[in-house]
Amino acid sequence: MTAVATDDRAALEVSGLSKSFRAVRALDDVAIDLRYGRVTALLGDNGAGKSTLVKCISGIYAPDSGVVRVNGVERSIPSPEAARSLGIETVHQTLAVIDPLDVVENLFLNREHTRGGRLGARLGVLDKKRMRAESSEILGRLDIRIPSLRRSMSALSGGQRQAVAIGRAAAWGQQIVLLDEPAAALGVEQAARVLDLIRSLRDAGVAVLLITHNMDRVTEVCDRAVVLRQGRKTADVDVGAVTKDDLVAYITGARSGGLA
């Protein structure tokens, strides 16, 4: 990971983002900024539009309207591949890993190293040795411990699977990493490991978006919090300036905060 300087520059600026599914207005004129070296929480009740926002930024959904800037440059993100080549990596709520593939294959999926020169590259001859070595390095750097890199994902625990998914995002998302409820299905200890991972991403200068329902995690690792309610943004605040009760009030719609 090439460390991006931990300044306060905006990595990703989204504004006026709207997306409807037939009658359902999943996102309504939403704006959000992600900054390098900062973790932004995206909060909201079930169905608030959090995953839809992430999918619009990661090229899975085409938004109805809205502007996305990456490093200050306006970009259209028509496909997941486009998002990835802009340095945006995502751990989706339900699409995290491919079960029958092993750890190395998951880490390098669609980013494989090939061997055998140009012909090998055209044929896609996998350089398994190199990918295995780099996988150990990636996982080691993030202090992710997996019993064997050649294990298929289906043989790993929920925490290990999620760690691999985050490891992949960390390995390729050198600028922006979006995490949709990465610890939702995990036990206490494994969730704590995920938080450690998020901290090390932040310390490496990555702009992180974290979707979670756990207010403790917000106060522990997040710098800013953006709250959605029924597709609308109801709060955009510094986490240090509010209490957990405030955050819950924004989520339930009892109050709104920090909006111009």
């Binding site: 990661s58 090229g59 899975i60 496909s79 997941p80 591949e81 998002a83 990835r84 995502t90 989706h92 699409l95 995290a96 890993v97 491919i98 999926l109 669609n110």
Partner: peptide
């Protein structure tokens, strides 16, 4: 869907 989300 997961494969598509990784750009395949």
């Amino acid at each position: 869907n997961a494969a598509a989300a990784l750009g395949i």
